[in-house]
Simulated assay, not measured.
Amino acid sequence: MPETIIRKVREQRNYTQDFVAKQMGISQNAYSKIENGYTQLTVKHIKELSKILEVSLMELLRDDFEIHKPNHIHTESINKDNLLMAINQIADKLNEKHPQKHDFYPIVMSLLQTVDTTVDNIH
């Protein structure tokens, strides 16, 4: 859980809960609730903690959102129609979800924007 990672990194930096809480502009009690999983982390919390603890966003999220290298990478060329079909299937799945109920929605949208930019740069 991100809370465990946050606590671990904070302790490695020898930061107190009070120090991190003050940096975030919240009480030590409110910060403690974040570390203990009583307060749900928001994107804003993760961004603030990333800066304060001097670690990447992905490092803080690695338990819940770990990207694994595939066992087998297709090296053969795929055609445009198959790629578009796969993208449309992903879009359909995303459209079935309610964005306000998923913390990782902004991350998924960011990944899709990166893919979009990458495709724009393909000649």
Rank of each mutant, 00 (worst) to 15 (best):
I78K: 08
L60Y: 07
V43Y: 05
V9A: 00
Y15H: 00
K93V: 13
R13M: 00
F19W: 02
L61F: 14
L57H: 09
N36I: 06
D64G: 15
V9Q: 00
H74G: 01
D92Y: 12
I26Y: 03
F19G: 01
M109L: 11
E11G: 03
I122N: 11
L49Y: 12
A91L: 13
G37N: 05
I6D: 01
K47G: 07
G37M: 06
A86K: 10
R62F: 06
N95W: 04
T114G: 06
I73V: 13
P70L: 01
S27A: 06
G25K: 04
L57S: 11
I26H: 07
R13C: 00
T16E: 01
K44P: 14
P106N: 01
T42Y: 04
Y105C: 06
Q12N: 07
I52C: 04
S32Y: 02
E59G: 01
P2R: 09
V115G: 05
T42N: 05
Y15M: 02
E48D: 13
L41N: 02
S27I: 02
V115Q: 10
V108H: 03
I90M: 07
M24T: 04
P99S: 01
Q28S: 14
K8I: 11
I90R: 12
L60S: 02
Q12R: 03
L112F: 00
T75R: 07
Q100T: 14
S77M: 12
L84N: 15
N29S: 14
N82I: 08
Q17M: 07
S32W: 01
R7K: 12
Q12W: 01
T117N: 08
F65I: 02
G25M: 01
H74I: 06
N14E: 06
Q40M: 11
E59W: 01
T117L: 09
L84E: 12
I34L: 15
T16H: 01
E59H: 14
V55R: 12
Y15V: 00
H45D: 15
M1A: 14
N29Y: 07
D116Y: 03
D92V: 13
D81P: 07
L60C: 03
Y38K: 13
H68I: 15
H68K: 15
Q89H: 10
T4W: 06
A91P: 09
G37C: 12
L84F: 08
P70R: 03
E48S: 13
H45Y: 14
H72E: 15
H102M: 02
N88Q: 15
L84Y: 11
I78F: 04
K22I: 00
E3P: 03
I34N: 14
N88F: 09
M24V: 00
L61N: 13
N95S: 08
S27R: 04
E76N: 11
L94V: 13
N82T: 14
Q113W: 01
L53A: 07
P70M: 04
S77R: 10
V20G: 02
I67H: 11
Q40I: 09
A91C: 11
F19H: 03
E66P: 04
M85L: 09
S77H: 08
S50D: 05
I87F: 11
Y31T: 04
L83Q: 09
